[in-house]
């Protein structure tokens, strides 16, 4: 998997494709539920600035070194035979 940095418009477009919107404060909104997306890991609102858009349909991660570590371990390394 390659990690890439997208600009704001690219990120918004990808989010729109999966039925998410971004409000004027940069908070990501579930367009179906009309509610902000809250991270299960950090219990924080997920913002456009700090989101990682991860494959597997589209997973939204509130990005910190701790959440990245969890993602790498659970989704990348376990698939490579290193659970």
């Amino acid at each position: 998997m390659e990690f890439e940095e997208l600009d704001v418009e690219g990120k918004k477009l990808l989010l729109n494709a999966y039925n998410y919107e971004v409000d004027e404060e940069g908070i990501i909104i579930d367009a179906t539920l009309k509610e902000p997306v809250i991270s299960k890991d950090t219990q924080q609102l997920i913002t456009l600035k700090n989101v990682s858009l991860l494959p597997g349909s589209l997973n939204l991660l509130d990005t910190t070194p701790l959440t990245i570590s969890k993602f790498l371990r659970e989704k990348i390394e376990s698939k490579n035979g290193n659970p």
Binding site: F3, E4, L14, L53, P55, T63, L72
Partner: peptide, 15 residues
């Protein structure tokens, strides 16, 4: 995107 080749992140170096 569902091919799973890319992850779009705020800071690729950190990843």
């Amino acid at each position: 995107n569902n091919l799973g080749k890319f992850a779009f992140v705020p800071n690729a170096e950190e990843y």
